[in-house]
Simulated assay, not measured.
Amino acid sequence: MRRPDGWIGEKSGWHIRWLQVRGRRVRLRYRLEGPFLARGAAQQPVFLLVIKGLRVSKPGRRPYYKEPTYWLISAVWRQGQWPLPLPLEEILEWLWQRWEVEVSHREMKTGFGVGQMPCWSPPSAILSVRWAAWVYAILVLAGYRAWGVTGGSVRPPSRWWSGARRWSFNSLWRGYRQELWGTQEFQALWSGLTGKLWKNELWWAGLWNAVAGSVRI
C-alpha cells in the first residue's frame, strides 16, 4: 500500500469542487481512495481523502502555497456496504471549517484566558473553562448577529486602517470596549473615591486605567 503523499504525483483521478467560504468561492482539487484496512484496525475500514495544494494570492500581499492535506475517514456499515458517513461535499466543507475551530481555540486561550484562571479544586477547574467558553460563544454570537459572517468590523481609533473584509475576535472585543467605556458603569478611567482622597490620587487613577484596559472579562 502506497503512502498518502504518493497520490500527489498522479495526473488522473482528481476531482474539482467549489466551496462557498466567507462569501467567496474556493476551488479544491481532491481525490478519494479506498476503503482500506489499516494495520492494527482490521475491523474498521477507512477512506483516504487527498486535497491537493493550493496557491493563494491576495491583492497587496505576497502569494503563498498551502500544502496538501491528507485525511482518514472512517467508513460506516450500511446496507451491506462500507460507504462514507456523510456526503463528500459536506465532508469537504467541514474539513475547511476545521481551521475556524483552530482559530477559535487560539483566541480562547491567548485572548480570553481559557485555561489560565487560578483554580484550587477539580470542579472549579472544569466550571471555569465552561464559563469562559460560554461567555466567548455569547460574544461571538453577538458579532455574527451584528455584522454577519462577512460583514464589516469595528474600526480602530487610528485612521490608517480602512477595515478588514471579515471581523475577528480582537476587533469584536475592541468594539465592546468602545461601546461600554462610554457608559458610567464601565468607565475605563477610575475617577477616585468620594470623601477623603488619597495623596496619590492621579497616580492611582492612571494605574487603574491601565489595568481596566487590559482585563479580558
Score class of each variant (00 low, 15 high):
Gln44Gly: 02
Pro45Asn: 08
Val21Asn: 10
Ala42Phe: 04
Pro63Thr: 08
Val26Gln: 06
Val21Asp: 11
Arg17Trp: 09
Pro59Asn: 14
Trp18Leu: 15
Leu28Ala: 01
Lys52Asn: 13
Val50Leu: 00
Arg39Trp: 06
Arg31Trp: 00
Leu19Arg: 02
Val56Gly: 10
Pro45Met: 00
Ile51Pro: 07
Phe47Lys: 08
Leu37Asn: 04
Leu48Ala: 02
Leu28Trp: 06
Lys58Arg: 15
Leu54Val: 12
Ala38Ser: 11
Arg27Phe: 00
Ser57Leu: 08
Leu19Thr: 01
Ser57Lys: 12
Val46Lys: 13
Phe47Gln: 08
Leu28Met: 01
Leu54Asp: 14
Pro63Cys: 07
Arg31Cys: 06
Arg39Pro: 07
Pro63Gly: 08
Gln44Leu: 10
Arg24His: 10
Val50Arg: 06
Gly40Gln: 04
Val50Cys: 05
Lys52Gly: 14
Trp18Gly: 08
Pro59Val: 13
Phe36Lys: 00
Ala41Gly: 12
Leu49Asn: 10
Pro59Gly: 12
Gly60Ser: 04
Ser57Val: 12
Val46His: 13
Arg27Met: 05
Gln44Arg: 11
Leu28Ile: 02
Arg24Phe: 05
Tyr64Asn: 04
Ala38His: 09
Glu33Tyr: 00
Ala42Gln: 05
Gln43His: 13
Arg61Tyr: 12
Leu48Trp: 01
Arg25Asp: 12
Gln20Ala: 09
Gly23Asp: 02
Gly23His: 01
Gln43Phe: 01
Trp18Arg: 15
Arg24Ser: 12
Pro35Tyr: 03
Leu32Met: 00
Tyr64Glu: 09
Phe36Ile: 01
Val26Gly: 03
Lys52Arg: 15
